[in-house]
């Protein structure tokens, strides 16, 4: 069974003319045991989807299930095995960080004391300060420690590292790797692509409340183009005429162009036949994948050329 199964999810806020269709037939499948990246431009509906999965918003259509249960009706059972960290953590200003960590973990059955101590050290959090005086990053650490200090089946993170420094970000990655080694499932919404590339096996990209792409990172890379910088005797026109070659230009005596991933073999064969003096091949980055989807005027419009970097 998949940990999360969302089909055709619709969420409309408000009524009548002032209503917003935040989710418009969204699909999302998170397999048990995987780290799933959940990506999309601002306002795409990531947080809304997560709140539906947490049973905090009621869907207006479609279906959603977590561990095979309905998140709206069965929230208590789901939440016992779930840890959540919102992107913008707000805490009780008069409680200390330590008190809040204890409160949140006790609601789920209590923290693992040794784990709690280790996490406080790793995340370098002073648990005696009132939450009022914590910085944004420190507030986020409180929620992260509360999430990690007790084992959960499913971890849901909504931009969990947006306020963390790079050292803390790496602590976060290590913790995600630890919990997945233990068999937990992670849904990670993030704008930090390096984080997603490093942690996630599969990603879902959404836009305007709809899923535009979903699959393994490798399969998604397939959908983009690899850029070539080649020193070659081949004539520019000949190369430009090859199938799958785009945006050819000459820079400092080198040919610069992008190639569809499917057409790579043919292009390489042609180049080899003509002779190669230098070759730089840049694989498609997730960022390019992103820019392509984020920048599209419509999700189903034909792919536009990727900007050369």
């Amino acid at each position: 069974m998949d940990a999360i199964e969302v089909l055709g999810l619709v969420k409309v806020f408000g009524r009548g003319r002032s209503s917003t269709r935040a989710l418009d037939g969204l699909d999302l499948t998170v397999r048990t045991g995987e780290v799933h990246g959940f990506l999309g431009p601002n306002g795409a509906g990531k947080s809304t989807t997560i709140r539906v999965l947490l049973g905090q918003l009621r869907s207006s259509g479609g279906s959603a299930s977590v561990f095979g249960r309905n998140p709206w009706d069965d929230s208590v059972a789901i939440h016992r095995d779930l840890a959540y960290v919102p992107g913008d953590v707000s805490l009780w200003p008069n409680l200390s960080g330590g008190e809040i960590i204890d409160l949140l973990t006790r609601l789920r059955g209590g923290a693992d004391a040794a784990l709690r101590t280790r996490l406080l050290g790793d995340f370098q959090l002073d648990p005696t300060k009132k939450a009022r005086s914590y910085s944004k990053g420190n507030r986020q650490k409180v929620a992260l420690i509360a999430a990690f200090a007790r084992r959960a089946e499913l971890y849901v993170f909504d931009e969990p590292t947006s306020g963390l420094d790079p050292v803390m970000e790496s602590v976060f990655r290590a913790e995600v790797e630890r919990v997945t080694r233990d068999g937990a499932t992670v849904l990670l919404s993030s704008h930090i692509l390096s984080e997603v590339e490093q942690l996630c096996e599969r990603v879902t990209i959404i836009r305007a409340g709809r899923t535009v792409e979903s699959g393994t990172l490798a399969s998604l890379r397939h959908l983009t183009r690899t850029s070539f910088h080649v020193g070659t005797a081949a004539a520019a026109d000949d190369i430009a005429r090859l199938p799958g070659v785009h945006d050819l230009a000459t820079e400092a005596g080198q040919l610069v162009f992008d190639v569809d991933t499917d057409s790579m073999t043919g292009v390489l064969a042609a180049l080899t036949a003509a002779g190669i003096t230098s070759l730089t091949v840049t694989p498609p980055s997730l960022e390019e994948l992103f820019l392509r989807h984020y920048g599209d005027p419509k999700p189903d419009a034909p792919a536009v050329p990727v900007d050369a970097r």
């Binding site: 409680l95 200390s96 330590g98 008190e99 204890d102 300060k129 009132k130 009022r132």
Partner: peptide, 17 residues
């Protein structure tokens, strides 16, 4: 602001608490 305890008292473990 005064410092606060690093861990919660026994009551603070439920919505009622």
């Amino acid at each position: 602001e005064r410092r606060r305890p690093a861990s919660a008292g026994r009551l603070l473990g439920s919505t009622l608490g």
